[in-house]
């Protein structure tokens, strides 16, 4: 039950993009086409889950026992940066097709604030390892849903006759606002 609440909250009620404003850069950057947004969501889920596990272990077995919590920001970002590199190298060797699919999105992952954000939120909420993993996966799904919906909307926007001043980024933001408005309907679900 507890896991279900974490999942529903992370995907719908507190959607990571539309309610918490994390990962806006890839949300706008790669949402031009549906196919690229699927690749991006896959890469985010992969890295987010691994990053949460590793940072959880570091937080609870190294930083807290030695009372080094103030180094959290530096440690986490370094772990995530090296993790992204490592995942990239391993994927290249082990699974070339997956690397082909996710490849170009992996380097962008270091500066995706959703990854670091979820890692820090997991620590702030005092989740145990299992809850942390569920939380990370649910947030990645939430990111995927938001990205997919938004890229479908943007594909349609290209075909419409938008007033000149609003073309491109401004209309995309207004569309994102309306999408966020729709997600507010989930408030109070849990």
């Amino acid at each position: 039950m507890e896991y279900i609440i974490i999942i529903i909250t992370a995907i719908f009620v507190n959607n990571i993009v539309l309610a918490q404003f994390l990962g806006i850069c890839p949300f706008l950057g790669v949402s031009g086409k549906v196919s690229t947004s699927v690749g991006m969501s896959g890469a985010v889920m992969f890295v987010m889950t691994i990053a949460t596990i590793v940072t959880w272990l570091i937080q609870n077995y190294i930083l807290i026992p030695f009372s080094l919590e103030f180094l959290q920001t530096i440690t986490f970002i370094l772990v995530i940066a090296s993790l992204v590199q490592m995942v990239e190298i391993i994927l290249k060797k082990v699974s070339p097709p997956l690397y082909q699919a996710l490849g170009i999105f992996l380097p962008l992952m270091t500066t995706n604030c959703a990854i670091l954000g979820v890692a820090i939120l997991t620590m702030q909420n005092d989740y145990n390892l299992m809850q942390g993993v569920v939380f990370a996966i649910a947030n990645a799904i939430g990111f995927g849903i938001a990205l997919l919906l938004f890229s479908s909307i943007r594909e349609h926007l290209d075909l419409l006759d938008v007033p000149k001043g609003m073309r491109g980024v401004p209309i995309a933001f207004v569309a994102a606002g309306i999408l966020a408005l729709a997600f507010m309907g989930f408030a109070g679900l849990v």
Partner: peptide, 15 residues
Amino acid sequence: VLAPGAFIALGYLIA
């Protein structure tokens, strides 16, 4: 003040 307003306000400001 809520989330949707942030997107909409920024969209119009950029325009």
